[in-house]
Design a protein around this nucleic acid. Structure first.
Lengths: 102, 102
DNA sequence: CACCGACATTGACAATCATCGATATCTTTC
DNA sequence: GAAAGATATCGATGATTGTCAATGTCGGTG
């Protein structure tokens, strides 16, 4: 793996390598319509609204979440394929991927 | 996802959310025998030996790498299943997992 | 237009982190 | 047992990060 590719991937991994951001992604993906607005996310995380907005921005900047403003609310959803790419990187380095013990 | 589970997972994600540690895991898994010692890893990463040892310790503490001392050398290998678990967590939050548009 | 609610941004602070130089530990060899 | 080499640990430092309080911005409402 090249240094450039590693840096690129590390930015996305850093984005999800936080307990509150992991919960944000989980909450959003399991929400009705697979989307949620900020006001739905502050209470279950027990964090202030600015902090949640900050975490969401990090996830959007990393290309993991999508932000859509509808009226007064901002709806966040998981970008299709973003997490699959990261999951694929991890699977590549797994032992016994397509190997069988005879 | 519970706060405890998120914290637990974030520790493993933090461990790999570093460009040099991503390259370490990649280098080790693609090495002959799927293992490598520190002296094989310092040069391709262009880092000092203490720094590489430090990163390896973080990966071992996170349960991602396994350390085995043989003689003077310390051989590191990827723990089977560790990365698959993380990959599974990411896949769970992916849109269109077992969903098909009619 | 004045107000209110949802959200974003800013500034600050404590905590964590990545890196390095110096040094310690342990194993093999002579 | 002294020397050499591989690796781990320690201490320090500059950079990044997570959180919050305060404030700014923008859309909807009366």
């Amino acid at each position: 793996m090249s240094a450039g590719r590693a840096l690129e991937l590390s930015k996305q991994f850093k984005a999800i390598a936080d307990p509150n951001r992991l919960r944000l992604v989980s909450l959003i993906s399991s929400s009705p319509g697979s989307e949620a607005c900020v006001c739905d996310l502050t209470e279950p995380l027990d964090l202030g609204q600015p902090t949640v907005s900050h975490h969401l921005k990090i996830l959007v900047d990393a290309g993991i979440l999508h932000r859509e403003k509808r009226g007064v609310w901002a709806y966040y959803s998981v970008v299709p394929g973003a997490l699959n790419t990261l999951a694929g990187v991890l699977s590549e380095s797994c032992p016994t991927p397509e190997m069988r013990p005879a």
